[in-house]
Amino acid sequence: MIETTNITKERIKESLKEGKRFDGRKFDEYRKLVIESGVSKKAEGSVRVKLGETDVVVGIKMDVVAPYPDGLDEGVLMTSAEFLAISSPRYEPGPPKIGAIELARIIDRGIRESKYVDFKKLCIKEGEKVWQIFIDIYSINDDGNLLDAAAIGALAALKSAKIPKYDEKTERVQYGEWSDKKVPLVEKNTPFTITIHKIGDRLIVDPNREEEDASEGRVSIAMSGDSSENFINAMQKGNVATFSIEELEKVLELVEDQWKEIKGKFDKIVK
């Protein structure tokens, strides 16, 4: 079935009012997180992330390019996402639509604004040559919450990536050969993106497909920090539901709690 029916959406809403999710999870409980490395040997780094039955792959490719005028000594980041037609009957082949564009931009901003990547270390020659990092995200199976899964995937892929060899004389990247240098990352700035969904007046995390269809509003937050202090680096409210200031405060509490959970799981799996 392509669309979730209105009856199902109503039942999800009613059930949440009684404190229950269809699959028995708690409101603040993520599905099982699995991170596997090495989707493509040709990539500088790649991972596959599963959240329950949601499945995404994220790959890193790199190139040497001219820097942007506003960052002559800084590397360049480009994040894109595609919801593949194989991942759901609701997607079709073709250029990314707004859903994929928004997902990529939210993840991009989290990584950029947190300064997780040390862009200055990606400078080869100031004003002339810098490394560009492409983070490319593809959905393999969409069972809801592609966003949080893809955000975790982007972090894990970056962590796994090695910088290719670069020949200074020919000015060419020697694709297929890698240096022993990894992408320069700043651990304490790791930005975990956590999305809170509003269904009726209930707030939940990690919706499955049906729940996400029933969701009327969401707030995605990219948060970095350590045990002493957290920082919000990027945030976006999506969809049409509005949030009162009190609800926003609840969202922030939930995100801070989930941040610890996700970080704990991530650090255990990704070394």
């Binding site: 901003r109 604004e113 947190s114 707030v219 202090e229 957290n230 920082f231 919000i232 680096n233 990027a234 945030m235 976006q236 409210k237 509005t242 949030f243 009162s244 200031i245 926003l248 405060e249 922030l252 995100v255 801070e256």
Partner: peptide, 22 residues
Amino acid sequence: GGKIALLQLDGKIRPKELKEAA
């Protein structure tokens, strides 16, 4: 109607500061 309809953010801010911002 007294509720948040648009909310985006770029940068670095503490949760407490965000509440003040709202």
